[in-house]
């Protein structure tokens, strides 16, 4: 089963999303940590009232986390679950 085209598609559907997105959000998070460390002046720039760039970027980390979670949930329901269930029921019927 692991060699089958059907499983290959499921694996690709999972990896082609999970791997690049993981690299992207970790890079984005590290960028934020590095900016906090080495770009104090930029981070301290006032945006509105007492709200500065640092706070806006911090809240943006929250926002991207929520969005990626939501995006993955939708994608998994559409592309992973149907394939996984089809393979599982076929294997269990065959066993």
């Amino acid at each position: 089963m692991q060699q089958s085209a059907e499983f290959g598609e499921l694996r690709r559907a999972h990896r082609s999303f999970a791997f690049p997105v993981t690299i992207a959000f970790i890079a984005w998070y590290l960028l934020y940590v590095l900016l906090s460390n080495y770009a104090g002046g930029f981070m301290g720039t006032k945006v509105a009232g007492h709200v500065n760039v640092a706070l806006v970027l911090g809240l943006a980390q929250f926002l991207t986390t929520f969005l990626i979670a939501w995006w993955y949930a939708r994608r998994a329901a559409a592309r992973l679950d149907p394939r996984a269930e089809a393979i599982k029921s076929r294997m269990e019927a065959g066993a």
């Binding site: 999303f17 998070y29 906090s36």
Partner: peptide
């Protein structure tokens, strides 16, 4: 605040992988 952000973003590793 960094603690809050790191503790939360970390959950994406758990979710995706």
């Amino acid at each position: 605040f960094l603690y809050s952000i790191g503790f939360l973003v970390a959950w994406l590793v758990a979710l995706l992988l």
